[in-house]
């Protein structure tokens, strides 16, 4: 009988949700490469091989200063890694990319070879949202890949619900916005109205290179080059699109459930 068949099959297969963050993080695809690391010291004097190759001018080398890589504009295509003769720019394979401030994504200075990982929300917001965070997703331009990877977090493998994080239908029920896409001019009014409809206290999360700095469409007259131009953003998650593991790590890091979950499950 159909009902009996589905129930038996389900119970046989057990829980398909991954152990992370209690257990080990699932492996990134090995050609993914993860975060980048920039040691400006290794740069040759007048070499700008990486600047010529980068599609979104993420890598810049002003004449007097050392090379600077803005991960917010980076599409993680790793062309610069291949083009760099001295290996100044390398891939660390690290999936953790979420940062709280836009300048934390700029690499290259002496102390800033890697991005400065996001710290936890300030105490008042953390205590409010730690166990129950309802997000309203707004797709403002972009190519629907970031939406797809945010959606994947809802499936049984990642199961975002176990952290009390949920995507809700109405901004009235929401505690914050999760924005994808470079905020096209046509979507500017809709984004403003959605932000206005969310009751305080509220947070804004920018997912993907488009939402941080315009992604492959940076500089187009039809877009606003990211959500930061219009709204105060609390969390930046770079990538084109960021791997679901990166997005999940960003969210639970923001809520401070990463290190305390190390102590107990879930």
């Amino acid at each position: 009988m159909f009902v009996h068949d589905t129930l038996l099959n389900r119970l046989k297969r057990g829980c398909a949700t991954m152990a992370y963050p209690a257990g080990p993080a699932p492996a990134l695809p090995e050609r993914h490469g993860g975060a980048l690391r920039v040691e400006a010291a290794k740069c040759q004097a007048d070499c700008a091989a990486c600047v010529a190759v980068c599609p979104t001018e993420a890598v810049t080398r002003p004449p007097d200063r050392r090379v600077a890589l803005d991960l917010g504009r980076c599409l993680f295509c790793a062309e610069c890694v291949k083009a760099c003769p001295t290996g100044a720019i390398t891939q660390t394979g690290d999936h953790r990319l979420a940062v709280r401030r836009r300048e934390d994504l700029v690499l290259g200075e002496a102390g800033n070879e890697q991005l400065r990982l996001a710290g936890v929300l300030d105490e008042k917001l953390r205590r409010l949202f730690r166990r129950s965070l309802k997000l309203r997703q707004v797709s403002a331009g972009g190519c629907n890949a970031c939406e797809a990877d945010t959606n994947v977090l809802g499936t049984i493998g990642w199961d975002l619900g176990r952290f009390g994080i949920q995507f809700v239908a109405s901004p009235r029920h929401a505690d914050g916005l999760l924005i994808t896409g470079p905020v096209s001019k046509n979507m500017e009014l809709a984004l403003q109205k959605t932000y206005a409809a969310v009751p305080e206290p509220r947070i804004v999360i920018a997912v993907g290179a488009c939402a941080i700095a315009g992604g492959p469409f940076v500089g187009h007259p039809q877009v606003h080059n990211g959500a930061g131009v219009l709204l105060p953003v609390d969390l930046f998650i770079p990538g084109c699109p960021p791997h679901p593991l990166t997005i999940l790590d960003g969210l639970i890091r923001l809520l401070g459930r990463l290190e305390e979950s190390g102590r107990k499950t879930g």
Partner: peptide, 23 residues
Amino acid sequence: FQHRGIEEALAGGPHRATIYQME
């Protein structure tokens, strides 16, 4: 609402960012 002006940016292409915009 998702209009990002891809065709307009292609004039005089292919530029460095074109393949990424195609993707």
